[in-house]
Design a protein around this nucleic acid. Structure first.
Length: 380
RNA sequence: GCGAUUGUGGUAUAACGGUUAUUACGUCUGGUUGUGGUCCGGGAAACGAGGGUUCGACUCCCUUCUUUCGCCCCA
């Protein structure tokens, strides 16, 4: 029997496992600081619901949805992202409604280095939003990225602005043209022009290459300008990128994308409509953050080695746990214990043997320096 | 999904159309050492899967799966 993980799925073991949960917990706390409320939603939903409005958008996305059937022959699907579930969650909520969610989403799509078919999305959304909320969620991201010591650039554009430009040159606004525009910073000038030509949109290229000041003449640029100003108030900069489109989907106003050292985008989002309300949201995946973070993630661990003093060792472990330390007890010889500590990156070792018990002095051995210091137990 | 690429114990590797498939690390185990990354001994564990060619295939061929990289799209 083959027990390997399926292509695009991954185990997180050891250091990766702790790194994962440290990032998740940190993100959760930041979201809470902004009074977003946490929700949990089912992984499985009706297929038609998961597909949502994307039906008319592009077949590609739909083929990326994992589908399944239950015993009652219901057509079901694994959630592709979280936003569609807001249709249900946001009903009858006083606006603005701020919620966040962290959990796995599934996409049956080709994999590569930083792309998985199951990944953990961290998503914040505000229903009943204005551009002020857009700035707020960007500042949330900025804070998380800062904590993770990730160098990043936030790019912004506006879908209405793109529409204005397309109208101006008399090109129909279709997802394919938008798709080509989105590739501007990826392909060569020649390729882009050729691709755009197919839609009679080669003129767009020249416009998108113009300096930012040129775009002031478009009405929708004011939304970008406003967001820029608001972000400045928060103390960070964002960059206008007229070719940023974010593929297909439901965006109607400002769209954002955050880039870092890897070629894949690390955060993406924008403003859209849900249940007749303007909404804005952004999300990132823990897996991709793990790929770029420079943060040193370490959990302080203690190993108590019982040298024939099991009861004392367990007592000591209990005391340390009450103080909030992470501790495990090892029953065995000193050299094996130290080897064990090394192998699981346990940095502090305390031997509990006859001598220690008699003298009532325990020493904490630091595995990196090799030195020992006296253990002082706080009175509790 | 398409195109290219990859595949030997957990990891990293060696060899070969022909007996029992190399080595290292890790892992399990016995002994030694009251303060380490030792030392000595023993063990488990691999040719991705299926078919074909052949007297004989880990080796050649086909299929499939897997890996990696592009395309498409995305976090």
């Amino acid at each position: 029997m083959n027990i390997d993980t399926i292509k695009g799925f991954k185990d997180f073991v050891g250091e990766e496992g702790t790194k994962f949960s440290v990032i998740r917990e940190m993100a959760r706390q930041v979201f809470e600081r902004y009074n977003f409320e946490e929700v949990q939603t089912p992984v499985i939903e009706r297929e038609e619901f998961v597909r949502g409005d994307k039906v008319q958008a592009n077949d590609e996305v739909i083929s990326d949805i994992f589908t399944l059937q239950d015993k009652g022959k219901r057509k079901l699907a694994l959630r592709y992202e979280f936003t569609f579930q807001l249709k249900r969650i946001a009903q009858n909520k006083k606006l603005p409604y701020k919620r966040f969610q962290i959990g796995p989403v599934f996409r049956d799509e080709p994999i590569s280095g930083n792309r998985l078919r199951q990944f953990t999305q961290c998503d914040v959304d505000v229903i009943g939003s204005t551009i002020k909320e857009e700035a707020e969620i960007l500042s949330i991201m900025k804070q998380i990225l800062g904590t993770l010591k990730i160098k990043s650039v936030i790019y912004v554009n506006n879908r209405k602005l793109l529409n204005e430009i397309l109208n101006e040159v008399g090109v129909e606004n279709n997802p394919e043209v938008i798709g080509e525009i989105d590739k501007m910073d990826k392909l060569s000038e020649k390729e882009i022009k050729e691709n755009l030509k197919k839609f009679g949109a080669e003129e767009v290229f020249g416009i998108l290459k113009k300096p930012e000041s040129y775009f002031k003449k478009y009405k929708a640029y004011s939304e970008v300008a406003e967001l820029k100003k608001l972000c400045k108030n928060y103390g960070f900069e964002i960059k206008f990128s007229p070719s940023l489109a974010r593929g297909l989907s439901y965006y109607i106003g400002n769209v954002f994308e955050i880039k870092s050292d890897i070629k894949e985008t690390i955060c993406g989002g924008g403003s859209y409509m849900v249940a007749g309300q303007p909404a804005t949201g952004i999300s990132f995946s823990i897996e991709r953050m793990m790929a770029v973070t420079k943060m040193q993630i370490e959990i302080e661990k203690y190993l108590i080695v019982s040298l024939g003093e099991d009861k004392k060792a367990i007592d000591l472990a209990k005391k340390l746990r009450i103080q909030g330390k992470n501790v495990s007890v090892f029953y065995g010889k000193p050299s094996k214990a130290l080897e064990y500590a090394n192998s699981y990156k346990i940095k502090k070792v305390i031997f509990v043997g006859e001598k220690e018990v008699k003298e009532k002095v325990f020493r904490i051995k630091n595995m990196i320096t090799g030195r020992s210091v006296k253990l002082v137990l706080k009175k509790s």
